[in-house]
Amino acid sequence: MGIIRTQDLVYEYVRRDEEGNVEGSIRAVEGVNLDIEPGDFIAILGHNGSGKSTLAKHMNAILCPTEGCIWVDGKDTREPSELWNIRQTAGMVFQNPDNQIIGQVVEEDVGFGPENMGVPTREIWERVEESLKAVGMYQYRKYSPNKLSGGQKQRVSIAGVLAMHPKCIILDEPTAMLDPNGRKEVIRAVRALNEVERLTVILITHYMEEIIHAGKVFVMDHGRIAMQGTPREIFSRVEELKALRLDVPQVTMLAYELKKRGIPLPDGILTTEELLKALGL
């Protein structure tokens, strides 16, 4: 069984008026079936309101399904006794680094998770060191987080999750607030965790060029999985993506436009190198 598996997962937000009477409801996730293998790099795309964050919040039991099931490393998230195990297995990184950092010093912040789990002090320090090294922030361990750039803060947030030794890390738009360099730093760190540490990664983003290295992409719409495939398969379907309020990387778009104008090019070009080769250069 996969590290994260869902079966007909539904989540319904219920709206109530001031007296607590039900006014209406929205099914934010509508019958999602997923099976994510350990070590996968999964990307989830979808427009605002498509249900991707709601789905992500099920992966470490912030939300529990109103219908259907989700298992994280084989554990049913509706089982209250498994809650802490699940959160330790699947760690989450959010959009705004300033909302996730609590320590006065970088290493203290990263040590917060394992300390809360009751890890012995010496081991905490070992974990802090390896986690900060994994995201390339070890040299900043004595810094105050508010002296760091957005990309650096976000990498500290990731280290904080790593220090809990999760099997899976879920990143919900981790680069939305960062400048171009910060975005690159974070994506590079995330890829290294997947490739070197074999950590399962689930990346939610609105930046198409960030996911060209993912193993599999899910595109959500109206709470359902509307498309799935490799980045090349997904980005070959330019018109469908546009209809779902999404986009393709600039190089893919350029190749697509050239093809429309009669240049013989394959679909789903993902990198400049591929474009050069396809043009015979």
């Binding site: 400048d179 171009p180 360099n181 910060g182 060029e209 990387p249 600039q250 190089v251 350029l254 400049t272 474009l275 050069l276 043009l279 250069l281």
Partner: peptide, 20 residues
């Protein structure tokens, strides 16, 4: 200074380098 040109500008530079 931590910024970049649009991706398409890099593509054009790569094309030129290859002789287009």
């Amino acid at each position: 200074v931590g910024l970049a040109a649009p991706q398409v500008t890099y593509i054009m530079r790569a094309l030129k380098k290859k002789g287009l």
